[in-house]
């Protein structure tokens, strides 16, 4: 990999002045599971790497009265094993536990997963379904507006994501990851399907340039009891609402079939009262 300068600021203000100094020619480093590979493959060649792990203001998971706070230092392992996350949002813990390997989850962060903005990011769909909010030093952005395209976000060159805020909510549902291998693999399709009261939230990854919320399918379901016939309608609607492509992992047709299958299976599980696999 090309050489670069390495900075490890200890405060947010120091990190922000480095961000301002380098602009687009610096990259932020947390767990490194995406950044180091991009450096090695020459996909990026920054002048400087700014390691955020020394910043005193950044945290791991904080569970308070109103929110789940996924601080920028939260590793996938911490998120997957956090007792409150496991209790309230098991599908989010499940998604985190399905990323990479044990070694990788000890380093990779949830915030990094979102900032990297891959269409198949595993923690994307649960956070989309939870209406999570991405928080930077300057502003709060709903997660569906934060990720704008494949590997693009609305993060400005002088901003740093400090964490992701999930307002407390009562919901149940499940995360599904379809991949060739159950561990250490990328999602062919991933999804989170939730029920909160009489409303439904369906979110899919790897079926469009960004993770998607299926608003039309949700509208079809909201406020009505789940029946087998309505689930069928939703499965057909979900299939029409996504825009997958064919790639190395699967064909467009396979992905459409999986979207239909996951929608049917997850909603049926909700109808039957269960949500756990």
């Amino acid at each position: 990999m090309k050489n670069f300068l390495y900075h490890k600021p200890t405060t947010l203000s120091e990190a922000l002045s480095l961000r301002a100094r380098y602009g687009q020619s610096a990259v932020l480093l947390a767990g490194g599971s995406d950044v180091v590979i991009q450096l090695r493959e020459h996909l990026i060649a920054p002048e400087a790497v700014i390691d955020i792990k020394g910043i005193a203001e950044l945290t791991g998971v904080v569970w308070d009265e109103h929110n789940l706070w996924i601080g920028a230092k939260t590793t996938m392992r911490e998120l997957a094993e956090h007792p409150e996350v496991l209790r309230a949002y098991p599908f989010l813990a499940d998604a985190a536990s399905r990323v990479g390997s044990k070694q990788l989850r000890n380093r990779a962060t949830c915030v990094g997963n979102i900032v990297n903005a891959s269409p198949l990011c595993d923690t994307g769909t649960p956070l989309y379904a939870l209406d999570a909010v991405v928080v930077t030093n300057a502003r709060e952005i709903p997660i569906c507006e934060f990720i704008t395209f494949v590997r693009r976000t609305s993060l400005a060159a002088d901003e740093i994501v400090t964490g992701i805020r999930v307002p407390h909510q009562n919901c149940k549902g499940e995360f599904t990851k379809i991949s060739r291998r159950s561990e250490v693999d990328l999602s062919t399709v991933c999804a989170t399907v939730l029920q909160a009261g009489d409303s439904y939230r369906l979110s899919f990854g790897a079926v469009a340039p960004t993770p998607l919320r299926l608003r039309e399918t949700e509208a079809l379901l909201n406020g009505k009891p789940l029946t087998a016939a309505r689930i069928e309608q939703a499965a057909i609607s979900a299939r029409a609402e996504v825009k997958p492509i064919s790639d190395i992992r699967a064909s467009l047709e396979y992905r459409l079939d999986m979207v239909e299958l996951i929608t049917r299976r997850s909603l049926t599980n909700l109808m039957n009262g269960g949500s756990e696999a």
């Binding site: 180091v36 590979i37 790497v49 390691d51 390997s101």
Partner: peptide
């Protein structure tokens, strides 16, 4: 060299990690 095969696994601060995706200054 990409954090997938585990041949470079070491224990860092008590936890297994892939040495190939940790930068030297870290």
């Amino acid at each position: 060299g990409a954090g997938e095969c585990g041949a470079c696994t070491v224990i860092a601060d008590g936890r297994p990690v892939n040495a190939c995706i940790v930068l030297a200054p870290e």
